[in-house]
Design a protein around this nucleic acid. Structure first.
Lengths: 223, 223
DNA sequence: ACTCCGGCTGAACACGTGTTTAGCATTGAA
DNA sequence: TTCAATGCTAAACACGTGTTCAGCCGGAGT
């Protein structure tokens, strides 16, 4: 049999090795290093995937599928308001996936983009629940707030990891946990009591722009 | 004269071209492209700087010096609580410097590190003034808050630019202005009214960790 | 037993990189 | 004029990259 699509062993082993190497070293990792990890010749990698770019694309799909799976499996916890980030950080088995996502974030790749979009979408849901339950204050622009919260948290994590990269990428889970731990206090404090003592700046803004944008908030402040 | 250290023309032209190219294309930019920009042969670049790494280091110094200069020149505005980021975004002439800093942030390079450290240091000062003036609520851990505010803002900007890179890097100033504009509302809202309706989570944390760290907030949560 | 065939490899190719080297050209001094 | 030195370059080198190609090897089919 040609087993045109489901010879599960070698091809998948290469793909998995690639995901790991990409997560560890970024997408500049060489085909040769991936081949070595998979115990295979560089030529075979190309033979199976056609090119490095196609291998990259297939890794993207694989990781996105794994994320979907992880989300479905922990849907109960996620419903409680925990983000997928906590879920990833909870178990070290997710470290490669997390590393891959962060690399993709640094690269501006499609995995990073859709990951962020999904997180924003989820955040909209969480805040909606929170508001309805009376735990979260309503916002004049919920999508903008959700987007702000996600981007600031994820960007901060990305920055932290870029500035102090882990010696062993397997420790990524631990690093994210440490990050969540150290960010927790200032975040909770800010979320609880705010930063300013007066409503002046907010009210002035609401006066100046009486109707907060609904779809795109991307109007530059003229000049 | 040998003019051992102060032939200002060619060498500086190469350095400036390098800063620009690094800002545009990242530090992977080739020596050849820099040489072409400077109207010079690749060999001369090496002849003047010894190696690409040393050129990179010299560009770092140059940019840090420019940042110091820009800070000193606009010290009045900065004292009013505006961050250096606003200053950079205000005029397009700073776009290369800004681009260089962001690249260095992506790379985890020393420019990014000291830039962040400086911003955090400044933020500590700003918030201190704000608290004394009664405009800003005090925090149980001021350094942690300052660090949180800077990292979240800068990380967010970095993420935005990575995910939607400018077609023409000269537009960086405009992009940052747009970013500041769109982040402004959710940020002000969060800073004004907070996020949670109750103090429960904060109080629980303060109960659990009665004495917030004073110098370093980077203690991992045990293992 | 023979053939065929497909997974697989070693060796090479083409290319881009940072860097080196030999030497050109221009300039200033003796 | 001659010499030396300096700023600079063309060409090459060494190396790492993705990719290709001819062919090996082992197992299944007849």
């Amino acid at each position: 049999m040609r087993s045109a699509s489901n010879d599960p062993t070698t091809r998948e082993r290469i793909r998995d090795a690639a995901v790991l190497r990409f997560a560890r070293d970024g997408f500049g990792a060489s085909v040769r290093s991936i081949a070595t990890d998979a115990g295979v010749s560089p030529a075979l990698v190309i033979h199976h995937f056609g090119s490095k770019d196609e291998l990259h694309a297939e890794c993207d799909e694989q990781v996105l599928a794994e994320i979907r799976k992880a989300k479905n499996e922990s849907i109960d916890e996620l419903a409680a308001g925990q983000s997928i980030l906590h879920r990833f950080a909870a178990a070290d088995e997710y470290a490669p996936m997390l590393g891959y996502v962060l690399r993709s974030l640094q690269d501006g790749g499609p995995v990073g983009q859709t990951f962020i979009e999904q997180m924003i979408e989820d955040a909209v849901g969480y805040t909606k629940h929170g508001v309805e339950a009376g735990l979260v204050k309503p916002s004049h622009d919920e999508p903008a707030r959700a987007r702000y919260l996600v981007l600031s948290a994820l960007g901060m994590l990305m920055l932290e990891i870029t500035l102090r990269p882990p010696e062993d990428p397997a420790d990524l889970g631990a690093i994210v946990r440490e990050f969540l731990a150290t960010s927790y206090f200032p975040m909770i404090e800010l979320y609880t009591q705010g930063f300013f003592t007066t409503r002046r700046m907010l009210d002035e803004y609401l006066l100046y722009v009486p109707d907060p944008p609904q779809d795109t908030a991307t109007e530059p402040a003229s000049d």
